[in-house]
Design a protein around this nucleic acid. Structure first.
Length: 628
DNA sequence: GCCGTTTTCGGCCCGACTGTTTTCAGTCG
């Protein structure tokens, strides 16, 4: 009897626990058997990595294709596949239980405890029979750890410190939350006299929706000086380690931050190495190895007796020497981008827009199709939002999408108010044409602080356009709270779910599909309703929704608000592969929120989207002409 | 335990930092 309840995370977790216990079981002697166990635990870890990175659900894969499906996943062979099968069927893995009976420690507590690994824990267990984190903490507090052979006062203190840090650690941060801090530190490092350039790398450079730690890279001839400046920043709470080229700190907000300092000639290699992700990096180093080369953070080297650096200054030359085209950081998640880059190198003669790795650009959006105002739950007036969209963010159009009447908490608009708003928008557009909207009202003191981001392809003052729209509420049965004859008077209409989140997947999917089939609805806003780190969103059969969107010519939104980023990257990829059209909106409730558009672009790039797949890269009229 | 244009054995990505190691193991990213 199979009950659908094992996530990829659950499966990866138990495989990691097996790996941890196996590693605890390894003794120091370097005999052949020990060596085999060493690689055995690494195999379990590798399988866990692989599963965590998978976009499909393993349990579904197993139910549909059985063991054979599991065996198709790299790093999963007969032994691990059958253990996954056992776990899905029974919720347990006998092999794990056996290991645990030999070493009855609370593995969960130690798995993510930094600095104290399986080998250290084994020594402690052998001496003191410690099984839990609390017991370890007590033993260290009472001075028992330092009495163990091979341990010291210093190590005991380190253990206490690491447990304290572990208990205080907050896990992953939202990209949008830490973005300003990252930019601030990046600027601080860049402006140091001894630093030639500095950039944030790691998952931040890949623009992952959540960030586990912040990595920085700096180019300098005097690394020691840079490292001292880094660890003495006021943002640093604790120095976790520092050497001649690297430093590790914990920042005041609880996030870890690493710095690597390299000379100019290693910049590209270090950039590549520290941008990750891990699997992408490993794949590259294996390719290097297969070509008789060695790749590390200092460069790409030949393996002659006298090592020669053959690349390292730029990322491009590293990739090219490995017979790959340069891969945008947002794609480096080991999801097929390396194979693509291999083929891409043969396509260099093709026009830019046909290149496989030519993604949507950060300056490609021309409009924003979800903008709220103080007529409902926004903070600013229509004309203010329009002004900032145009002047500060260089947009050509915005759609005003206030909530509708059944969303009482936002004072949603009724039919009359929606039509009044549309009339007002029409008047504002007339004023814009006569160039007397933005000038009289807002230009005086505010423009002084505004950076003009004028782009040559963007149009003149007079062509800015405000589109009448609404974020119509999808009711429990999939119907809307505003009739079609009202919606049809608007330029463009979005629909979204804001209530009844706990309905089963069939009903939620039905609601969304019913909305998509409604001829008045152009876009489904934030299609899954998730709030990252807070709620999963309502359950949706994504493939079915995609199919319906495609059939009805309905656009799906990538909501760029940093705690939504909805659709998420893998669904964007699915939409792109299935020819479903997308837009990227900020969901702005205040002018500063237009900045979220960049996060939406990043998310789209992580889903491998190109410019022509995102509708609001078009001028306003083209966009409207392209709707259903 | 996984994997294979050197396939069924013999490899498995690579280097920095820490501690007490006087040449290395453990841990991490």
């Amino acid at each position: 009897m199979i009950t659908m309840n094992k996530t990829n995370g659950d499966i990866a977790h138990i495989l990691r626990k097996i790996s941890f216990l196996l590693e605890m079981d390894t003794n120091k002697k370097n005999d052949r058997q020990t060596n085999a166990i060493n690689f055995k635990n690494r195999a379990y870890n590798k399988a866990a990595d692989q599963i965590e990175n998978l976009s499909i659900n393993i349990e579904k894969l197993y139910i549909n294709e059985g063991i054979g499906g599991l065996l198709k996943i790299p790093s999963i062979g007969r032994a691990i596949a059958s253990k996954i099968e056992e776990f899905i069927k029974t919720g347990e893995i006998n092999y794990y239980n056996q290991l645990k009976s030999e070493l009855p420690i609370n593995v969960d507590e130690f798995l993510n405890l930094e600095g104290i690994g399986p080998k250290t824990l084994r020594l402690i267990y052998d001496s003191l029979k410690i099984k839990t984190l609390d017991e370890l903490y007590d033993a260290a507090t009472n001075g028992k750890i330092k009495t163990i052979d091979g341990f010291s006062q210093k190590k005991e203190e380190a253990i206490l410190r690491k447990i304290d840090l572990y208990r205080k650690s907050k896990g992953r941060f939202l990209l949008g939350e830490i973005y300003p801090l990252v930019k601030q530190i990046e600027k601080y490092l860049s402006e140091l006299d001894c630093v030639k350039r500095s950039v944030a790398v790691g998952s931040f450079r890949r623009m992952k929706e959540t960030i586990g730690d912040i990595d920085f890279l700096a180019v300098s001839d005097v690394p020691q000086k840079v490292i001292e400046s880094f660890v003495s920043m006021p943002e640093v709470k604790e120095i976790l380690g520092k050497g001649s080229s690297k430093a590790f700190v914990k920042l005041n907000n609880g996030i870890d931050s690493d710095l690597l300092v390299v000379p100019e000639e290693s910049y590209g290699a270090a950039l590549q190495y520290f941008t990750g992700n891990k699997e992408h990096g490993i794949a590259l180093r294996k390719i290097a190895q297969s070509k008789g080369l060695r790749l590390n953070e200092w460069g790409l080297f030949t393996l002659n007796s006298t090592e020669n650096r053959i690349a390292g200054l730029t990322e491009e030359e590293i990739y090219h020497r490995l017979d790959l085209d340069w891969i945008p950081p947002e794609m480096r998640e080991s999801k097929g981008e390396i194979e693509l880059a291999k083929r891409e190198l043969e396509n260099t003669k093709k026009p830019r827009e046909d290149r496989l790795l030519q993604l949507l650009g950060y300056r490609d959006l021309r409009g924003d199709l979800q903008v709220h105002t103080n007529n409902t739950d926004g903070k600013m007036a229509i004309e203010e939002m329009a002004y900032y969209a145009k002047e500060k963010f260089g947009l050509d159009y915005i759609a005003i999408t206030d909530h509708t009447k059944s969303l009482k908490i936002t004072n949603g608009l009724d039919e009359g108010q929606i039509l009044d708003q549309a009339n007002k928008i029409s008047e504002l557009n007339d004023k814009i044409k006569n160039d007397d909207l933005f000038l009289d009202k807002f230009s005086n003191e505010k423009t002084a602080n505004i950076k003009h981001k004028k782009n040559s392809q963007r149009s003149s003052n007079a062509s800015f356009r405000i589109l009448s729209s609404a974020e119509v509420n999808i009711l429990k049965d999939g119907s809307l709270d505003i009739p079609n004859n009202v919606l049809d008077k608007l330029d463009i209409v979005g629909a979204a779910i804001h209530s009844n989140f706990s309905l089963p997947i069939e009903m939620q999917t039905h609601r969304l599909i019913t909305a998509a089939q409604n001829p008045s609805i152009d876009i489904i806003f934030h299609p899954t309703g998730r709030i990252i780190n807070k709620r999963d969103g309502y359950p949706v059969d994504i493939p079915k929704l995609m199919e319906s969107a495609k059939d009805t010519d309905t656009v799906l939104e990538i909501d760029a608000h940093y705690d939504r980023l909805d659709l998420k990257d893998e669904y964007i990829k699915m939409a792109v592969e299935n020819g479903v059209r997308l837009v990227i909106d900020s969901d702005a409730h205040h002018q500063i929120h237009f900045a979220f558009l960049n996060l939406g672009v990043a998310q789209a790039r992580r889903g491998w989207a190109k410019k022509n797949e995102i509708l609001n890269t078009l001028p306003a009229q083209n966009l409207l002409d392209n709707l259903k």
